Amino acid sequence: MKAILHTGRGGPERLRFTDTENKRPGPQEIKIRLKNAGLNHRDLFVMQDRPVPDLPWIPGSDGAGTIEEIGERVTGFTIGKEVVIHPTLGWNRTADLPRVPDILGGPTDGTFAEFVIVPVENVFPKPAFLSWEEAGVLPLSALTAYRALFSQGKLQPGEHLMITGIGGGVATYALMMAKAVGASVTVTSRHQEKLRKAIKLGADHGLDNAANWATESNRDKTDLILDSVGGAVFPRFFPLLNPGGKIVSLGASTEAQIELSLRELFFSQFSLIGTSMGSREEFIEMLHFIETYRIRPVVDSVYALPDTAKAFDRLTSGEQFGNVSISIAP
């Protein structure tokens, strides 16, 4: 089969489009003919930190397609069925928190290929109202946003949410999900065009990263901050929060180290919460949520499978708004 392989130490420059082995599914696995896949910053992190860099590996955690072959012990699925892939492996019950979630596409082979083989419990019907491009970029980012907002952040209707660094896939999903349940949403960015697009997508307010958020945000204080930027903006959070407010951290595109005032933390009873990916239970909840509210992923751009390295150039440019998609099959 045709696939994108990564070999050696390095980033997207180590990717090549080539032929590789076309495997068959095990007894409790399903083989999927992929239509579309999605890029995530996680793919870049895995490329740079592979334990066995000389072993050829297929990246990619997001994908949607049709069932090509079914393992001998699999029931309830049919050849040709349109499906999406839950990317978190082995984390079924939300309460059974893994130390570090295992994700499709690192270290296992992923979705930047004509076919992928996944456990039967990771295969779900594709939401019928989504296009292949939308379905292919849905799983990882939408799951991460759903868990961050509702399982960890406990967002309620009428609350005020701040999302830092609007523009990436998780941030755009979080914006749409929060508005769907009746929250007020403020977004931040250093790009005026991204702020404009976020307002058009439903955000109530947009703040430039260079602005003094404490003085410019002369409105109700924030109940929940969803942050993927990290150390560059974290010191600005406490003055923005209501007593009992929460900060949910899901990444660090800048410094991973922070300084904070413990007195402010305990006097105002703030909560600092980490989150990563999501369970099978939460994936089911997320699919129900996006079907109930008819939330459509924001697709920034689409690249053909042989042009995956160019797609990563778009991702790392910081200019994208929404998800970058890979078209695999017509």
Rank of each mutant, 00 (worst) to 15 (best):
T292I: 00
E114A: 13
I70S: 13
F150R: 01
F289T: 02
K179T: 00
L130Y: 01
A311Q: 04
K126W: 14
M47P: 02
R263E: 11
R236L: 15
P243D: 12
A311R: 09
F270G: 03
I225G: 00
L207Y: 10
K197I: 09
K194H: 14
Y146P: 06
P139C: 03
S271V: 01
R294T: 14
E159A: 03
P119F: 11
E264L: 14
K154N: 07
R42G: 03
Q156F: 08
F270D: 02
M47H: 09
F237H: 01
K200P: 01
S261L: 06
V233G: 08
A311T: 06
S189G: 08
V83G: 05
Q269F: 09
L130R: 06
S217A: 11
Q269M: 12
T111R: 07
N122I: 05
H160L: 03
V299L: 08
L224I: 09
I117S: 07
G165V: 06
G182A: 05
H205K: 11
G158Q: 13
E264R: 12
R196E: 15
A113H: 04
G274E: 08
D109P: 05
I70M: 13
P56N: 06
A198Q: 02
A329F: 14
R73V: 03
A180P: 00
P107Y: 14
A178F: 07
T215D: 15
G63E: 08
S317C: 08
R196M: 13
V118T: 05
Y303D: 05
I32M: 12
H6F: 11
L250K: 00
I4M: 15
E285P: 02
I103T: 07
V100L: 12
W91I: 04
V299C: 00
H191F: 13
G245A: 09
G63N: 04
T316W: 07
